[in-house]
Amino acid sequence: MSAAKNINITLKIWRQKDSKAKGNLETYTLNNVSTASSFLEMLDQLNEQLVNERKEPIAFDHDCREGICGMCSLYINGRAHGPDTGITTCQLHMRMFNDGDTIYVEPWRSRAFPVIKDLVVDRSAFDRIQQAGGFVSVNTSGNTIDANAIPIPKDDADKAFEAAACIGCGACVATCKNGSAMLFVGAKVSQYALLPQGKVEATQRVLNMVRQMDEEGFGNCTNTGACEIECPKGISLENIARMNREYLKASLK
């Protein structure tokens, strides 16, 4: 890897005071950004500069900063989680950019993900979908059965695991031209539908989760496949097809 160097960049960042305010893109120049720093560290650096200038720092979501919590977001230069594949924004590094670049940073855009402030959006719609059926009902009174006591075919276990890798960041919704949440819901439906423990409540689960998804105001999938490409965890479109099958099965019952 080439040695880190410092670059100067221009940023166009969405600023919005609160959920009711009308936001706009603000332009900032930031000099001496190390290409070894992460994208979020670059934003930290910008915020430090803003604080020193006695200006309001930019609000953005982040937590673990190691690509697993699903908290960071950001639509960078027209792509969810920026110009790289299989990563979240916290795993994006400034070496992906060049000296003199102009970088657009916008929040996820979806009716179901309203902007709270600047780049922070409210993703609780995903929580409500999950609460509508994304679980298995287990008696936890002390005699819980070990999940591994039931043999599961390797292929099913692998597919369920791949679906369960979804971190619920919302990149699929952000990148979909229809603001559809079907990759997320497809993954959540699939991770249970593939396992014997999940089959018990499969019918109600898919009906309830899809109903909640529709109520939240997400768009409809038109199979463009953009979500699969932008998903940091590589969730496959197969999961949407599985959800469609599950929904059909459940509807005919």
């Binding site: 230069n77 916008e106 979806s110 009716r111 038109t222 496949g225």
Partner: peptide, 28 residues
């Protein structure tokens, strides 16, 4: 479906890339 899909994103992006889906799929 198109009306619903347009409503699902009332505020659009200032910059979009478009490389992650085909032209036909975006213009059905």
């Amino acid at each position: 479906l198109t009306i619903q899909n347009k409503k699902a994103r009332p505020v659009g992006y200032a910059k979009t890339d478009g490389s992650s889906s085909s032209m036909a799929s975006r213009n059905m």
